[in-house]
């Protein structure tokens, strides 16, 4: 085992002795000319900055760093040997309150598990995204927090109209635990008259949001529009090659009032450094 890897050994023909130029900032520039595999002459410039990092260690540790190598390493130069020491791929240790993987989820669902204190875990609900974590830890905090204020102000005038709707939907939904309400049961069976999903889609009040930034994702739009009422569909125009947003999006609501609310509140709202423009989509008119 020798100190260098076969991959590092240069197969190119070196033309000059590398020129080393040091500047006052401690940056060394190494200029080399070589003939590469295709027979072309190439100039290779390497800029190297050496940074001395000082670390305080115990005297005994410092002493041990000076030890001579022995055994199979005897006589090898200092520094890690590529044949035995490598740097692996990036791995992540994501520490979280609620554990990781499927096992943790199973545990939470199991009411018989004594470790699973229901009084504790059930009550922790994020005020912003309704996730199972503290509001202060919400990943959507930055986007939703500012929206919460305007959606609250939007709700207050017709609170009376909005709240019965919610309660009726949940009572139709059956068991009190499940948040899921089948689409045909939402909005008090109002939409049962529609025959095909296509007709239904066309009937739904739709707004068009323009002047979105390129980095916008469908989830962002969803998060943006959710506070005004239940959203049936979000379409975000994306470039098929780059996957970036083309700058406009269509959002359909189940109810015209919520769409109107969204239109009023989001038109002129600053999102990702841009002022949004919101108008009725033509097809719904």
């Amino acid at each position: 085992m020798n100190g260098t890897s076969w991959a590092d050994e240069a197969t190119d023909q070196v033309l000059n002795f590398p020129q080393v130029i040091s500047d006052e900032n401690g940056i060394k520039t190494v200029v080399e000319y070589r003939i590469n595999e295709d027979g072309k002459k190439v100039k290779i410039t390497k800029r190297i900055r050496t940074q001395v990092v000082k670390e305080r260690v115990l005297r005994s540790v410092a002493e041990r760093k000076k030890w001579a190598k022995f055994g199979q390493e005897a006589g090898n130069p200092p520094g890690p040997n590529i044949s035995t020491t490598n740097v692996g791929e990036q791995v992540f240790l994501k520490l979280s309150q609620w554990g990781t993987g499927s096992k943790a989820e199973e545990e939470e669902d199991d009411p018989l598990n004594p470790k699973n204190d229901p009084s504790k875990s059930k009550t922790i609900t994020c005020r912003l995204c309704k996730g199972r974590h503290f509001t202060s830890k919400c990943p959507y905090k930055s986007t939703l927090e500012s929206l919460e204020d305007i959606s609250l102000s939007a709700k207050s005038p017709d609170d009376a109209a909005a709240s019965p709707k919610v309660s009726s939907a949940s009572s139709v939904g059956g068991s009190k635990n499940s948040n899921y309400v089948p689409p045909h049961l939402r909005n008090g069976n109002k939409s049962q008259t529609t025959d095909s999903p296509r007709d239904k889609r066309d009937d739904l009040p739709t707004i068009r949001i323009t002047n979105l930034s390129e980095d916008t994702k469908e989830t962002d739009v969803q998060a943006l529009c959710k506070p005004f009422g239940s959203v049936s569909r979000v379409f975000l125009a994306k470039d098929w090659q780059t996957g970036q947003c083309k700058g406009y999006s269509f959002v359909s609501y189940y109810e015209k009032s919520s769409a109107q609310k969204a239109l009023d509140k989001l038109n002129g709202y600053g999102f990702d450094n841009l002022i949004l423009k919101v108008e009725w989509s033509n097809s719904s008119n």
Partner: peptide
Amino acid sequence: TTVNVWYSHNGERLGTYN
């Protein structure tokens, strides 16, 4: 059959005990 000792800060092998 080898025992290895490494510097933990950079993974350099200090030696082996044979």
